[in-house]
Design a protein around this nucleic acid. Structure first.
Lengths: 200, 200, 200, 200
DNA sequence: TTCTAATCGAGACGGTACGTCCCGTCTTTTT
DNA sequence: AAAAAGACGGGACGTACCGTCTCGATTAGAA
């Protein structure tokens, strides 16, 4: 049995990330210490520091190691329905326990630590954004979106309100809220613009 | 004897908040310690703890003690122009040095500390929101906004993208960006909707 | 109305000393703080500091305020019996709970604070010593003590062993021990010297 | 490869005890703080707390680390002369600067802290006492001390007066005083007893 | 197999900051 | 005028973690 993958090195790495999540879930990221993580993982502190140069980056890896299977980017031909699906799934995963508080903490950490901010963008935000942008591009080509509409901006306008609720007002991000954002953004605030049809 | 109000108590309070801002600007909020603030303010640590029960709440008060004269909520009759003014001023104040990093740090702290989150909302977000909502309500009554448009939602859709850039992608929030958000939100993404006129 | 003795000032003083003893008995002198005493006495700290310039001197006064009625200096004509009485009473009072630990603490404090040491000597040790020295002098005149024996030294030799046990070895100072000290000191260690008669 | 014993651990321990003595000599034991000792030793506070659980026990170790070469327990056949030698040397070391004040402070601390008291007895008082008791035993066997004289008591009677002067009256303990104690104790106070010969 | 050489756990280490306690002084308010 | 109440600057407490640094004790691949 020539080594079942998961070299010693990798098994340590995983144990540490697992321990980091456990500790974060138990006492919150604010009180997560490298010492506690190392102890919990049954590992020397050095072994942690050898892999991550800051608490934030360890935490980032730990959070991103969670399976993102919950996220989906379908293309059924109906862009509003597809976006609703994407946003609903994402919100369900990112904005609710148990990962909601951790994701918020991660973004919070990014406000203090540029390295975390950069890595979070590069490794999570940008890939997810790219998928959605591709869907928006297809929609524009299908004539579902005005041809002069900047799609990057479209993404911001769709995502922004959800993050605003998550991070600022901390009001719950419900399916209805997502729905009303979609309707409003597609219709526009101006009275001349036409509303999209309500969800059946 | 009008008494030069600024009792000893108040003068300490101000000195501490001033010191907190100084320290935060010098080393960043992440490295701000109560100890350093107290020393800088020429005050015992207990004098700080007597007033604030956490670093976050002290920092919140310190940041909010800055004059918010930069913020404006005009009503010229042109809601888009007025919102542009409000948003531009707010962004100029909150998203750029020297206060930009501090405001971001404050929101970051709010992700870890529910008390900070609540206080930030109650003392800053909600009042500012109320002013803008009043302006949106007037606009709706004037027929500048579709009569069935939820104004709370409108506020989220306008603010969200700015916060998204500030907190997540960390791309600069320029006047042009604000402008394009306004146009997009008023016009809607749907191809049938009519664009608002471009800024002259 | 020439004031009914126990002016406000004196009543405070007594309340403070009482409180000091209470606190010392509860948590030990080592953990006695002026703040605790003041609070216990229902008095401002200033009122304590106005009367005593150190914790040690307050404690000294508090301990010495205890009635020393337990101490006696009889003169029955039998110097050994009289000394036995004096020493037994003193040890009973000073070396046993509840005052034993306090007296030890007071002497302990005197090792750190010269003012306490001086005051303790002047106000307690010397007066008690004087009484015993007077008794020894009478005994010498009666021929019960060798005429060339230095009485100051005699006092040291009688007291020393008791204090040695109290402060150093912390062995209990029993009546039997006092008795054997008296016998030994009167008889001398030298084999030629004659023993005093045993206590019946 | 004789290994220059003095592992890192031991070198810290010694540095801390040295620093403790330095600080105690400079500002007195009453004002000695763990913080100051650690700083002086160039060591973290935890490194001190890891070794000693109280200021008193650290101080005890520091004081006892002084070489006690000054103490001697000779046996020349003349018990009085030998005791005089032992007592004189001990007093010279323990009752005079620079160690006098520290030894007094140590005994003072023992009055507040039972752990210090116990350790002081076990590690210093008892060994020294044992040596002297052995000498007294030899003397008794040689007929220099009355055969029915309790030697433990003898030790108390010889030591007590010295400690009494050191701790209570704070009169200087001179060679003459030691001499007169010896004479008095050997001769006894009783007029019938015979004086030992005076020191030539 | 035997020997490097790396890795590991364990945790000591110098250091910073924590939040608390108490010092002795100073203010404020009440009586 | 004296008091209680307690705010104040300051110093130290004992603790928690930081990130670095020894330690031996496993490994594990190269000789």
């Amino acid at each position: 049995m020539t080594d079942s993958r998961a070299s010693r090195h990798d098994s340590r790495t995983e144990a540490i990330m697992k321990a980091a999540l456990d500790v974060a879930l138990e006492v919150g990221y604010a009180r997560l210490s490298i010492e506690a993580v190392a102890t919990r993982a049954g590992v020397g502190k050095h072994t942690v520091y050898r892999r991550w140069c800051s608490r934030g980056l360890l935490f980032l890896d730990a959070v991103l190691s969670l399976n993102t299977e919950g996220l989906s980017h379908p293309d059924t031909g109906d862009v509003v329905a597809d976006l609703r699906e994407t946003m609903t799934k994402a919100v369900k995963l990112l904005a609710h326990p148990p990962w909601g508080p951790l994701y918020r903490a991660l973004i919070g950490e990014a406000q203090h630590d540029p390295e975390v901010a950069a890595a979070l963008n590069r490794r999570f935000i940008e890939p997810q954004t790219a998928d959605t942008l591709a869907r928006l591009k297809a929609a524009k080509e299908q004539g579902e979106i005005a041809p002069d509409f900047d799609l990057d901006l479209a993404f911001d306008i769709l995502s922004g309100p959800l993050y605003y609720r998550l991070l600022i007002t901390q009001q719950p991000v419900t399916d209805d809220y997502i729905d009303s954002v979609l309707r409003a953004v597609f219709a526009g605030m101006s009275p001349r613009s036409r509303p999209v049809r309500r969800r059946s």
